[in-house]
Design a protein around this nucleic acid. Structure first.
Lengths: 338, 338
DNA sequence: CTGAAAGCGCTAACAA
DNA sequence: TTGTTAGCGCTTTCAG
């Protein structure tokens, strides 16, 4: 059970020089003799010296930690984004502390507090679906704590954000359905106050308008973004006197719920009902039939978000909204016209 | 841009007492007057004081951080386990730093180094599939750094571990197939050196033996645990002169790959081929047909792993292998006898 | 070119 | 009951 880490002091003692000499030698300070520099560096690498980040943090008041808050940890969407964030963080010598709000407003606030207590230098947040009051975010801004949001965002005039072009994506979906010969296109949305709900809704409406289709309020359903509530929403749609022949869901979990309910009702996809989702590449191909979907560039989204974060950290920006383009990948679940 | 955090010094100055008085008052030290205690506590909560973890860490040489290394971050299996670990860590006032090896031996070693540089107090590891040499783990033990492993484990005589009862699970699967009337049961395994491969293989063999079925080496395939390589393995199986009528895969991703290849070959599940996987609850129900599977209690596995970690951290144990029981959940993908 | 000393925020042994 | 001091590992003036 030896001492786990060598300190500058240890090196200094061994070389019979002062701590500051060792410190300077290691960082190539100009006024240190070549000889000493070599000696110090040699011993340092031999002893496997690595600076103590706690000491540095205390001194510089910088922890090199970023706090991330996501609605959940088990969805591929968030995992993948976190991967992207982490890769950029690592490049900057930062590491990330991840916290899940579990879609709860209370937990989201707690997470923020805890992360700040841990002295993260800033936060990257995707807000929980329960969050309607944004005053806790306002407080962060007032305290000048760097915050960047992604996907589900708010206060974009004050908080840098990265989102997908939901409006455009929804329009693409509607047009695709139309091209395939579907006539009654339903949309299962999420909580109204979320930007993703609003934007995907407006794209849906614009798309219908574009295709000269009328809007039937019956075909617009809402759910709480869970698999179960999506199933229920789909069941309601199927019970309509004039049910839809196509449907798209606001995200992947919802899309899977829709598919399940449709199959349970004994209907065929895509023959009876076409389905399109907002999902990632992997899941779209695993489900059956393979799901036509707007794929988010999740990993890239994570990287962009992190890059924006570092811009904000250096105060290069105060706000900036980055809109990423999506791609509609056509698969079987909406292939009526084959 | 005010100062972000108040320190004991700030409080002391404001109250005209010494720093140590404030420190003691806050932690209910016996010999501090009730009056002062109240005064201090009041101001502390008013000023939103929270102790600086860096200072504490430096002093106590304890960072309250646990390093986690998993083969990937985007699989539900690991996400869910991490969730479990995190929940226990939080209860102990620890937080976790997550790192992915991306199934690479090199990255696994790098992750260990980086985490140690960050001064984590210990590591929770699920080894990469590339890892055959375990000397980097041995070094950790020699340095007396607390390490606990889960799922893919090694050196269990020196490293506490949490695993699922793979042997038993495989036997259950074989018996289930047999009960359903399947006769040629194939198994798609992973890299040979992994404990999960070995144990699931031995369970498979024992199961066959139990059911008085002969072992056909042709029916044993291997893959690198990826979706694509599982598809290829299945294709090889289907090309056999006498192909299997049932197959099970070593984990969820593999099971999905098998299903995909079977469907692409135009075969019906479960009529032509029965499929069973090792997966989690969620995915088993999303795929089509719903997949019969041995479900890992992933969240629980994470919690147990973390609990074992804290036991090891307190030196209550040096090694201990916890075997979690699995459950075979019968769904459509293997329902031949219906 | 090198060393001594202060200070980041905190605790704990030692004084008073 | 309270204050003083040293020290955790490091950087950075300020002195030699």
């Amino acid at each position: 059970m030896s001492k786990r880490h060598v300190s500058l002091k240890d090196l200094a003692k061994e070389l019979n020089v002062s701590i500051s000499t060792v410190s300077r030698a290691l960082k190539d300070h100009p006024d240190i003799s070549e000889e000493v520099r070599q000696k110090v560096k040699h011993l340092a690498s031999e002893r496997n010296y690595s600076p103590n980040p706690l000491a540095m943090g205390l001194l510089k008041q910088a922890t090199r930690m970023i706090g991330i808050i996501v609605p959940d940890l088990v969805t591929h969407f968030y995992s993948s984004i976190i991967s992207g964030i982490e890769s950029v963080a690592k490049e900057h010598g930062y590491f990330v502390v991840i916290s899940s709000s579990n879609e709860s407003y209370i937990k989201e606030k707690e997470s923020i507090e805890n992360l700040l207590k841990s002295r993260v230098e800033g936060l990257i947040i995707c807000m929980s679906q329960e969050t309607t009051d944004t005053s806790h975010f306002e407080k962060l801004i007032q305290a000048d704590i760097p915050v960047v949001m992604f996907d589900r965002v708010c206060l974009t005039d004050k908080i840098p954000a990265v989102i997908a072009d939901s409006n455009d994506a929804s329009q693409k979906i509607v047009r695709h359905f139309h091209d395939q010969g579907y006539n009654r296109i339903a949309y299962v949305s999420g909580p109204e106050h979320l930007n993703i709900s609003k934007e995907r809704m407006s794209g849906y409406l614009a798309g219908l308008n574009d295709c000269r289709m009328t809007v039937d309020p019956d075909l617009i359903e809402q759910c709480d973004l869970s698999f179960e509530s999506a199933q229920l929403a789909m069941k309601r749609l199927l019970k309509l006197p004039n049910p839809p022949d196509a449907v798209f869901g606001i995200n992947d979990t919802v899309a899977f719920g829709l598919m399940k309910a449709i199959k349970e009702a004994g209907l065929q996809i895509p023959e009876d009902i076409g389905v399109v989702g907002f999902t990632d590449e992997f899941h779209s191909t695993v489900v059956d039939p393979p799901l036509t979907s707007v794929t988010h560039p999740t990993y890239e989204m994570g990287r962009k978000t992190a890059e924006l974060f570092f811009k904000r950290l250096k105060s290069e920006i105060t706000s900036e909204t980055l809109v990423l383009q999506t791609k509609l990948v056509e698969r079987e679940s909406s292939a009526k016209s084959r």
